[in-house]
């Protein structure tokens, strides 16, 4: 069975959910090998990766790998592509994951597919393009397929892999050391999950009306353990920070459940959320295009519906 490299995404040594999804996906295509890049590796991390199917765990945990932007991870993966000759390389389709994929593609003379929402036999990828209007099957035709897969594309399923650990040393080139990270600034985000990874996202739009009113959206999100998003109208108005914008020029999310409150559903927004599995919309305008996408829609005042929904969920807990 072909070896499939999966680049591990981790925060302070904790393996992110998207990596478990990628391991699950890799298992359907071959034998998954997790690639740990940077400091923070531990026996717990290894156990987690093996639990979700990693037959091998390549460990390159020198601090240096995380000290520079993107290039060291691409060099590490290129080295492994050379030595292991894998069937494919999977990375998470985050902004940084895609950049790593891009550099790796250039280094190894390989094609790259971004934002896959599925991956099947022959490494044929499913993509959803033009704001969800067109479904595409695509594949890499030269080199080693490099595929950036969107978070939430596969449900993670635990199935033990052998978890054989192999230490890897990578000698970074001078050019990989060109862009140095001199400071990491962590901004408070509270206990909420990351927007791109969250299984549930609750977003507010123009109808929310003010920054203060976003408390309603946050409260509903917290009741569901969800991330908070915002439409461009809301971020442009300064009601919610720009990094939470869902849409064409913001984040693309693909959660199990997306709740849109006071969002009309313009193409700008749809491009960022149309691949959500279940969509619930609350809007007072029955003609709002968001209702065309909604699995469940409530035509009504979000200031009445959202608090009632929040309260009802609390009651049922």
């Amino acid at each position: 069975m072909a070896e499939i490299l999966v680049l591990v995404e981790q925060v302070d040594g904790e393996v992110k959910k998207v990596t478990l999804e990628l391991l699950t996906l890799a298992r359907s295509l071959g034998s998954p090998s997790a690639v740990w890049a940077g400091p923070g590796y531990s026996a717990d991390a290894k156990a987690r990766l093996a639990e979700y199917g990693a037959d091998k765990v390549y460990v390159a945990d020198s601090a240096e790998i995380a000290d520079y932007v993107v290039a060291p991870k691409a060099e590490l993966l290129a080295q492994l592509v050379g030595s292991a000759a894998p069937g494919a390389v999977l990375v998470a389709a985050t902004a940084e994951g895609k950049e790593i994929a891009g550099r790796l593609a250039v280094k190894t003379g390989s094609g790259v597919i971004t934002d896959a929402v599925g991956l099947g036999e022959g490494f044929v990828a499913d993509q959803s393009i033009f704001g969800g209007g067109v479904n595409v099957h695509s594949r890499v035709t030269r080199g080693t397929p490099i595929v950036a897969v969107r978070p939430n594309s596969t449900a993670p399923v635990a199935t033990a892999g052998a978890g054989a650990e192999e230490q890897v040393t990578v000698a970074l080139s001078d050019s990989a050391r060109a862009a140095k990270i001199v400071e990491r600034v962590k901004q408070e985000k509270g206990a909420r999950p990351e927007l791109a990874e969250a299984a549930i996202v609750v977003s507010g739009g123009r109808g929310v009306g003010s920054a203060e009113n976003f408390a309603l959206i946050e409260k509903l999100a917290d009741t569901l353990g969800a991330a908070v998003g915002a439409s461009r109208a809301a971020t442009d108005a300064g009601w919610y920070p720009h990094q939470f914008q869902v849409g064409q020029t913001g984040k693309t999310v693909s959660p199990q459940l997306y709740i849109a409150a006071g969002i009309s559903g313009a193409i700008q927004h749809r491009a960022g959320m149309q691949t959500a599995k279940t969509i619930v919309a609350i809007n007072k305008d029955s003609e709002a295009p968001i209702f065309e996408l909604a699995d469940y829609g409530i035509v009504g005042d979000l200031f009445k519906v959202v608090p009632q929904l929040t309260e009802e969920i609390e009651k049922r807990k």
């Binding site: 932007v69 060109a178 990491r184």
Partner: peptide
């Protein structure tokens, strides 16, 4: 995802 990195070159 957590804020920003200050990067120089």
């Amino acid at each position: 995802d957590y804020g920003y990195d200050k990067v120089e070159s």
